[in-house]
Nucleic acid binder design. Structure first.
Lengths: 260, 260
DNA sequence: TCCATAGTTACTATAATAGTAACAAGGTTA
DNA sequence: TAACCTTGTTACTATTATAGTAACTATGGA
């Protein structure tokens, strides 16, 4: 018999996590009212939750302005959690090794619903820095995104297309479903995807999907990112296609093992 | 009037965070009973909390074995929180720049009570990898630790000495309070500390404290880490003492600004 | 097959939370 | 300066959620 779904769900915990998650790169300081409004929690309850987080050290409150920000405990907590993600430690040595051999920036992402989550990234010292998103729904504009789409099942793909805003990042960004579909069909066949300055000017990438071999479902993707002044689409493919797909295959085995 | 301290504290949230924090690098999989035992929460409550985390995606449960591990949401959450730590973004460019100029591994830590918390670390590609702790109480054996101790106030220092186990990592590790005290007194005067293979064989470090200039309290420390086959204590000091203290000073200004 | 252990569900007294309302503290505008 | 916001804090309960006991199921070893 299935129990009342409310009995084994702690709403207070959910709310607390929502509040903590409100602090990110672009919002390192927040006020109580702001939190209350954004989280949709009444002011007193927000006060209690925030107060709890302050007492525990996850948040710190400026005595005068009352402004809230993440505390040292949150920093440790975040680090600990990321390090506790098992797959990260399985994937890291493979990517590090490939990075050493190829000296390119390598990015790995996991798919969670319609979202790409950053898993591990190793930057080539030469590559210029760009701000990489931790979570992205712009699958149409990234090599990893297109790699994932190329192995998505029909229904998920339709869901994606129905909601996809096709946000335009550069002149090269694909903004039509028909073009995208044609491309990912090609990617599916050849096993890798290309991002030719579609996300950021000057950046050309080659991606390959990560598969769970047991379930046959796509689990994420990796990409090699390079500067356009050193590579063309053709030279990128001839140089790296073999290595990306090889690495993706190796990582896929880990993913499969990990998820079973 | 001060309110009943229990009224504005959400215990459920505290427990949920304790549970999430149980997953770290060395414990990526846990069972319900294990969690219940470690967190000191009765089994049914643990079940409710864990179930909540599973439903929210912070944990994932293996359908067969029931083993729990962190879910994708937790990875994103951890990343988001770390990135949301304001000081990190203020400190990062300074350390990156110093790293570029000196081509050394630079480590930065914050002090939280008697514990050093990893803030940001930039590795020189040449340095051999060693597993850096996210949180450490072994202040006696690290350059950053001794830098912090050299600026701690008397009472905190006594607290530290009273509890310090003086764990021995290498033959060089200081294991006597008297030796440590003499050294940090010297460090206080000259403004930097040295770790001569006291934590790890083959690793020599020079550290400097981070101060909050407004309160006069020590806020953390930085260190430059180098291989012993390239440096002696003398050459390390003559090459880097100026630069570590300079960088520590610059970062201290940020810390001061940030904490006011 | 039996036993031990881990996980799940039912149940309910008790404790915790939600939400209203009132108040205090700053800051802003007139 | 006064009036008026807005934000944060506290008091007060009705209501709800949680803790904890106990029973049950599932699973994997002896």
């Amino acid at each position: 018999m299935v129990p009342d779904p409310n009995v084994y769900f702690a709403k207070t915990l959910e709310k607390g996590l929502i509040i903590l998650g409100l602090f990110d790169k672009d919002h390192s300081r927040r006020t109580l009212s702001e939190i209350s409004r954004l989280a949709g929690i009444n002011k007193t309850s927000t006060y209690r939750l925030v107060n709890t987080l302050v007492l525990l050290g996850y948040l710190s409150k400026n005595a005068r302005s009352k402004a809230l920000r993440l505390g040292p405990k949150a920093l440790l907590f975040g680090h600990t959690i990321v390090q506790g993600y098992e797959l990260l430690h399985m994937v890291k040595p493979l990517i590090d090794e490939a990075h050493r051999l190829c000296n390119v920036t390598i990015d790995s992402t996991l798919v969670d619903g319609q979202t790409l989550l950053a898993l591990y990234r190793r930057e080539a010292s030469s590559t210029f820095f760009f701000r990489q998103p931790l979570a992205s729904e712009d699958l149409h504009a990234r090599a990893t995104g297109k790699a994932v789409l190329s192995r998505m099942d029909q229904s998920d793909l339709e869901t994606f297309l129905a909601k996809a805003p096709f946000k335009k990042f550069t002149p090269n960004t694909i903004d039509q479903a028909s073009v995208l579909l044609r491309q990912i069909e090609e990617d599916r066949v050849r096993g890798f995807s290309i991002n030719n300055e579609e996300y950021l000017q000057g950046l050309i990438c080659i991606g390959a999907p990560l598969m769970n071999f047991q379930t046959g479902k796509v689990a994420g993707a990796i990409s090699f990112d390079l500067p356009t002044n050193e590579y063309t689409v053709e030279s990128l493919i001839s140089t790296y296609a073999g290595q990306v797909t090889k690495l993706a295959n190796d990582i896929s085995e880990l993913v499969t093992m990990n998820e079973s």
